[in-house]
Design a protein around this nucleic acid. Structure first.
Lengths: 216, 216
DNA sequence: GTCTATAATCTGATAGAC
DNA sequence: GTCTATCAGATTATAGAC
């Protein structure tokens, strides 16, 4: 899923050489592949032991290497969290763009409905990712400037979608995001695996659209 | 604040002896006082280093004793978290009861408005407490049966308040809680110390009341 | 790039003297 | 009840051989 999610914040942009470029690029590809494997294992471990329960020993073991070898791929543990954060933001962006591209001239309420549902399902699908991306729970970790920029980009996409739908009042924007995250949060915290709040999503969006005075 | 919050889950119910009962009770009081001091220091440290950043050595140092001595007051680190969780639930209950007692025959919308604001302000006042009470972020910690019962009691108080206001549809109850937690969560995560979402609270409640068809 | 070895430090928890 | 000493690990991170 999400095949072309590269996750290389540093491995690209240096493949301009022409001579010997084939083996070099093969090595880069291998390296990027290993980074992906490490991150995939990191996600697994975080789902098993909680976000803060990630250990480099166990992570190394999971990908078939010793903990110190991980430092060939990431500068620190927080750098791994940062790559995961960025990966999550990219995945959300791809999901947003994919959905908004599929909908051509859908009515504005449908736009907001599917926007809210896209966010909701993305978050519910992986609570640990949600925790990393949207909640301040790891005291030491703070996203890098590059990763933070991805988060800002996603907020911009959201704002654009709302604007396309005719929601321009900042208070309305904030209310919309609050309702969406509230339903999401309750679903994750109080009915994991269920649909108790998911079933309220469309009604909530409709209610907000009425309040905003949007056309049907 | 909240003077009579005793936090003794185990220290009471054993003061039936008549002979020598005065010094025994004095010792119990001293013990309970020390427990309170430990918990107060634990809150402080969690606010400084995050919920998961609590360390028994540092906690002992903060209250003027060595880490092992803490085991005279609490069975384990998780027992400390559990006492904090219970303390939070009791504080919320006291706040609820205090507010609903002050309002006698207030109109139903006013009841919901102040109920939502009570919850909102309680949570925003102490994000770490909010995290401990309402978010699953400490992998090892799970509230004890007694502490969990306090949480259930608070949910019952909330349900009763909503019912008093005429909100009986379970979907409406869930929507109300989702909106309240959504505003709360956004305020804590994206505007700590500010009032960006606090200012939307009354409008949101009014919107929900309209939707529920409640009288003014 | 991967390894071993280890630094340096932290952790929660226990034993037993006093 | 408090202490010291310690268990039995855990942790991230680095040095240096290969």
């Amino acid at each position: 899923m999400i095949e072309n999610l590269v996750t290389t914040t540093d491995a690209s942009t240096t493949d301009a050489g022409t001579t010997d470029s084939v083996p070099v690029r093969a090595i880069d590809r291998r390296r990027a592949q290993t980074r992906r494997e490490i991150l995939e294992a990191a996600w697994e471990l975080c789902r098993e032991h909680g976000l803060a329960g990630l250990s480099l020993r166990e992570l190394g073991e999971r990908v078939g290497m010793r903990a110190p070898s991980l430092y060939s791929y990431f500068d620190s543990k927080d750098a791994i969290y940062d790559a995961m954060f960025a990966e999550g933001q990219r995945a959300l962006r791809d999901r947003y763009l994919q959905v908004t591209a599929a909908l051509g001239d859908v009515p504005v309420r449908g736009l907001l409905r599917s926007g809210a549902r896209t966010f909701f399902e993305f978050c519910v699908a992986d609570p640990v990712r949600y925790q990393l991306m949207f909640q301040r729970t790891l005291p030491t970790f703070e996203p890098s400037a590059e990763s933070y920029a991805l988060a800002v980009e996603n907020l911009a996409i959201l704002a654009t979608t709302l604007e396309r739908a005719g929601v321009t009042d900042p208070r309305h924007v904030d209310l919309f995001t609050a309702v969406a995250t509230g339903l999401t949060d309750q679903q994750i915290s109080n009915d994991p695996g269920g649909d108790r709040w998911a079933r309220l999503l469309d009604d909530a969006v409709e209610l907000l659209c009425d309040h905003f005075g949007l056309p049907y």
